[in-house]
Design a protein around this nucleic acid. Structure first.
Lengths: 135, 135
DNA sequence: ACCATATAAGTGTAAATTACACTTAACAGT
DNA sequence: ACTGTTAAGTGTAATTTACACTTATATGGT
């Protein structure tokens, strides 16, 4: 029954959405076979502070169900057993399609900042842009 | 009881998350006082295809509850009444904090693509990078 | 022996968000 | 009267996220 932050202004930049996390996970697995704990560490290094580790494990299990990654237990090294993930061929294709999507996000962000930085446009005819209805 | 696309690879790039939509809404209202329908049209022009119009109206009502935007009915023009939104001072501050957050997203995307494009690194010592465990 | 810490992989679940379908209302044109 | 466009919603199942908690192996300190 507790209330969470929602969209209220006090705090911002919640955990990056799955749409960001998934392509990063796949990208890392393209170059190395890694286990969840390592993947999470890498994500944090890449800027994903405040990610929920539990949910990352869930995302990995889901990606495996979708046959985009595969796993096998590694009991060879010391410490608790690790589930080593690797990217499947389907996963590589999926990563490619994600890259295309992220390019769209990138263009949107560029658009945002190009508009955002137009703070003080042409003060001479301000009436054209001043607050009011547009035709 | 119907199943939705989930994270399965067949289709990608779902509607951009609220985290993207909100700053764009606020940015538009910084320069013009607009009503929901216009804001939605602008979003679509900016690349937000497949947004849910109903949810945008809900987001606007929520932003108003949070005192980030304010509205008033406009019955002057023909057609159905419009709810004209304008950005509050708190909303401007919120937009600024969102801009900072979006910069972080931008850096992440840059990182993604710089890693992603490193497709075929130094084939001479491929064994260093070939699939296998990292130390 | 006992405790704390680090590593590793989870589970439980309330709250928030998203997707998809549907509704209401004003006005314009045929 | 019916169709189309503009405008602003509501209902709600499915999905995602946030926060709390659990299990287990091994190491180092007291």
């Amino acid at each position: 029954m507790k209330k969470r932050s929602s969209s209220s202004p006090e705090q911002n930049f919640p955990g990056a959405p799955k749409q960001f996390v998934v392509p990063f996970l796949l990208l890392q697995l393209r170059d190395f076979n890694l286990h969840g704990y390592q993947l999470i560490e890498q994500l944090i290094k890449l800027g994903f502070h405040s990610i929920d580790r539990g949910n990352i494990y869930r995302i990995l299990r889901q990606l495996e169900k979708d046959h985009l990654i595969s796993s096998q237990w590694d009991t060879s090294s010391e410490g608790p057993a690790r589930r080593i993930y690797s990217l499947t061929e389907a996963g590589e294709a999926y990563l490619q399609s994600w890259a295309a999507s992220l390019e769209l996000y990138q263009h949107m962000l560029e658009t945002f900042f190009s508009l955002y930085k137009k703070m003080f446009v042409s003060p001479s005819n301000e009436n054209e842009y001043s607050k009011g209805e547009r035709s």
